[in-house]
Structure formats: C-alpha cells, structure tokens
Simulated scan of single mutants.
Amino acid sequence: MSAVPVARTVAAVALPLAWNNIVLPRLGLGVRGRTAANAGFATGYTLALRDGPNRCSRAGLRYGLLAAGVVVASYGAALAFPALRRRLGAMSDRRPEVSAVEWVTVHVPIGTVYTEELIFRGCLDPLLDKAFGPRAGALLSAASFGLWHIAPARAAGDSVPATLAVTTAGGLVLGSLRRRAADATAPALLHLALNAGGAISPRLARRIGSAFEER
C-alpha cells in the first residue's frame, strides 16, 4: 500500500457499504427520501474523502457521449427488431411508486447515477488506485460496487450472487472508462444511458407492439 493512510482507505470502502446495506434500509424511506438521502450521503462522503476537484473535462464528455451513444443505439436497434422488442416488452416495470417521467428525470440521474458515480468513480476509484495501484484498485473498487447492491437486490427479490456478478462487472467497465477519460463524467454518462434506457425501452417496446397489433 502507498502513502494513503490505512484508516482512510478502510473508511472509504466501508462507509458506502454500511450506508447502502445497513443504514439506508433501516430508515424506511420512500423513493423520494432515498434519493435525497443518497445524494446527501454521496456529497458528504466525497467532500470528506476526495483528494482532487470535481471536473467536467472535454475528454470526459467525449468518451461519455460516445459510450452513451452506443448504448442508445443498441436500445434503438433492439426496438427495431420484433423478436428483441418482444423481449424488452416482457420485462417488468421496476420503477417504484412514482411516475415514469419522475423516475427517469429525477431518481435515475440523482438517486442512482450521481450517487454511485460520485462515490465509486469520483472518489473511491482514485483513492484505491493511489493506495494499491490501478490494477488492484480497479478490482477492489468494482468488488465494492458489487457489494453496494446487496440490500437493493434482496429488496427487489433478485438473486444476490447474480446481482453481485453483474454489478461487479459493470463496476469494472465503468472504472475502465473513468481511467481512460481521466474523468468520472464519462462513466456517469454511460451509467445514465444504461439505466434510463433500461427504464424507458420496455415501455416503448410495449407501445410499439400495441401500435402494430392495432393495424
């Protein structure tokens, strides 16, 4: 380990996991309360532990828009092909207790993307890279990102091992993009495209399918 203090590194890993898996579930908040609480926690966590300033660089925007464009194009292609569109339409609507518009414009960008990208790619990734080197830091941060999702997976009735595998892999992809762009803006834009597209595309698929059936 480098000169990064051990206690600071341990706290940086442990605090988000304790927050999302122990503290937040026990607060019993609704979706709006969780979004506000998550954003507040992420902001305070980053102010306390981040070394460098937050920034939105040209490289971050360029890489992020390119990656997000690939995701949007993929969703568009899936909607264009009947077999894939039917699969999308069969997916359950997982937004809780709020309208689709509110979910996509408020809770996805703030409660999920802002919170997770600020904590993991904006703060924890650079700290672990500095402490352990980029390779080990990438693995540790991705594993932490996976463990962050344990309580949400249980609450949704999802398989915890499958969720851990998927979100850890996602953490590796998002972290790799952050390192390539040297900016957390890039993975944030990709994350937003993935989650917003995942919320919108099943609804679009059902509407398109219904429109074809009415003809």
Rank of each mutant, 00 (worst) to 15 (best):
V108E: 03
P134L: 04
A73E: 05
R58Y: 11
D51T: 15
L65W: 10
L84S: 15
G76Q: 07
M91Y: 01
L61A: 14
F132V: 00
G60Q: 01
R26W: 15
R95W: 14
T46L: 09
D129A: 09
T43I: 11
V72G: 01
V104C: 14
L88D: 01
L140D: 02
G69N: 07
L84D: 09
W103S: 06
T105W: 13
L140Q: 00
R87F: 06
P96R: 06
A138F: 03
D51R: 15
L84M: 11
T115L: 10
V113D: 03
L127I: 15
Y63T: 11
A142D: 02
L140W: 03
P126C: 09
T35Q: 11
D93N: 13
T115H: 10
S57Q: 07
V70T: 12
P126V: 07
L84P: 00
A73G: 12
G60A: 08
P134V: 03
R94M: 13
P109S: 12
A142N: 00
L140G: 08
G133H: 10
P53K: 12
T115D: 07
A42E: 00
P82F: 00
R50C: 05
F120E: 00
P25W: 03
G28K: 08
P134G: 07
G76K: 06
V72S: 06
V113K: 02
G122D: 07
